[in-house]
Write a protein that binds this DNA or RNA. Structure first.
Lengths: 147, 147
DNA sequence: CTTGAGCCTGTAGTCACTACAGACATTATC
DNA sequence: GATAATGTCTGTAGTGACTACAGGCTCAAG
């Protein structure tokens, strides 16, 4: 395969390479309708263009930012609608932002407990371990401030 | 079923209620060997004791703190071993702590970008939306500092 | 004595992929 | 030009950590 750099139209492996995605993930996204089914060459190979690269990058970036597949589908619908309301996108982003902030808060609570218990631990080979005690007997920590 | 408060020995639903876990999750944990198979009463019902409550709480707390099932299995082995080395537990906790801190760092990066792009957004019904632009064309953000 | 809840089992569905098996196509090497 | 290695195609199964459901039993209440 020497067509790696031939002007327009490349194969799945090249799309994956350009975007840093997994080969199979591309097929998966097409199956669930997140990416369009690309045209096929005579040998039934998928043929991609720059537009596909852009769309896949959009999806991947959304995933990196923690949007779910369905959330990304929603964003793409706004994009595809043409007359995308910036307000709508903003609202969804802000909603997602509050989700992310809640996750951070949860993790920071966890971090605190882990750090505390690790610090209390002597590191000796004694049967009493504050970390295990913490795991066993701390009262519910998971409930504070959860939606 | 009025035996809700009968001294020793209760059913699965009561175990779930006491721990706040899902009924099916209990069975799942037993299936994968994270919880011991409890004794059965004449009618083949599972019979639990306080020890089961404690062990399930340990598991649940570990999950809340973001330990994987296998990590919890490892911690339980240390507990069950009797001669648990505190040092070993400490090491695992600290390893997990750095995982949690990495996750927090990732999320804060995401938070920043989401907040920035949402702030840039006018909220008008214009076709050009900075959030969509950001999703489409920001360079790789996911790579910095990743293990 | 029937109704309904609660428990039992195994199995399927979830999410977002990832991997594999087997068939055909293409490309590289001898 | 034969052969071997790689690449692509398809459908399907496996992952982790559950969750839900179907169908069958037991049990207590009305």
């Amino acid at each position: 395969m020497t067509d790696r750099a031939i002007g327009r139209g490349f194969k799945r492996s090249e799309l994956a390479r350009q975007t840093g995605s997994n080969l199979e993930t591309v097929r998966y996204y097409e199956k669930i309708g997140l990416l369009p089914e690309p045209p096929r060459s005579a040998n039934d190979y998928r043929v991609y263009s720059e537009a596909h690269v852009r769309r896949l990058r959009f999806v991947m970036r959304g995933r990196e930012l923690g949007f779910s597949i369905e959330e990304i589908r929603g964003l793409l619908e706004l994009v595809d609608g043409g007359k995308q309301t910036c307000a709508e996108v903003k609202e969804r982003t802000e909603h997602h932002l509050s989700d992310v902030r809640a996750k951070i808060a949860d993790l920071r609570r966890i971090e605190k407990i882990l750090a505390q218990t690790a610090a209390q631990c002597s590191g000796d080979a004694i049967p009493e371990c504050p970390i295990l005690d913490a795991l066993s007997s701390y009262p519910d920590v998971g409930d504070a401030g959860h939606r």
